[in-house]
Amino acid sequence: MGNKKIKKDQLNTLFNELSKDCSVLVPTRSKGYIGFDLWDENNGDFIGWYKNTTIPLKANFFPKVEDMFRFNKGEGGYEIKEILPEEESQIIFGVRPCDARALKIIGTLFADTYKDPYFLKRRENAILIGLGCNEPCDTCFCASMGASPGESQDVDLLCTDMGDELLFETVSKKGEDLLSNMRGLSDSSDGDSSKAKELREAANNKIQRKIDTSNLKEKMRANFENREYWENVSMKCMSCGICTYVCPTCHCFDIHDENNKKDGLRVRNWDSCKFPLFTRMPMENPRHEKWRRVRQRYHHKFEYYDMNFGVIACTGCGRCIRECPVNVDVTQIITGIQSL
């Protein structure tokens, strides 16, 4: 099936149609930060201002808090009632390529030996409509992380902003099925495709921030004990969890039981290796000093995840650089390691 396009002023009509069958989420900023929220007529105008969400896409699949199951102590022992996400299908529109890639990266972990039903169920029920970036941010470095701001293989449909129109390109079977059911779109021409290609190349060339990932794993391993380096780069860190919570690939969590005498609820919530209390529950946080905690975060992303899953757990979205209150910059830290 060929590609399609739609006039931007028809987008609200399209969202309206789509939201009859499932929930449609779009980027919104009404809450004082940017996140994906249910579409309504008043928030369909995001294309003019939207760069990326503050809270990454992962939060829609791996929320900051979620109920896992209820338990109940009866005569014969514990009775467990799993609480799975609702079956409702959803379309998430405006997903940036870095975040779609991040979802795929953590998806590998959530579908590994232990299949995480919460993440996987939500993922199965979601259709991602990507929106390529024509104007990447100053903090973006996706081009160094095996990606490109305007392209994505990790969404179902990919949109490119062509000025007055949006071009829809099919990426997956799920996307193809959806596109064939969408009304109000017209066929696109070869000219549109080549224009989109030009826009993507231009966007790629706009990325200023770069890191060198060649032999990075080895280089990090070799400098694991380089205490001076890590103490130096972590000196200004405030040990908060902002970088980990706005990161689209950070996926550490903690679990808690809400107990009454006989019954209770188990919940899962985000946790951060930057916190002194991290992993305290099973035993102890072996990383008492701040520099060890900072080192852990970068080693996990750039060395351990690569060792375990063959991919670096960073997509260059730049959120950690943007949101860090003291401007700790991952690209400076990695560049520093490469120059050791």
Partner: peptide, 16 residues
């Protein structure tokens, strides 16, 4: 209530 529903408990506020 709305404002605190947004909180992600990153502790940025307390740590700075």
């Amino acid at each position: 209530r709305e404002e605190f529903s947004k909180c992600i408990r990153c502790y940025g506020c307390k740590n700075v």
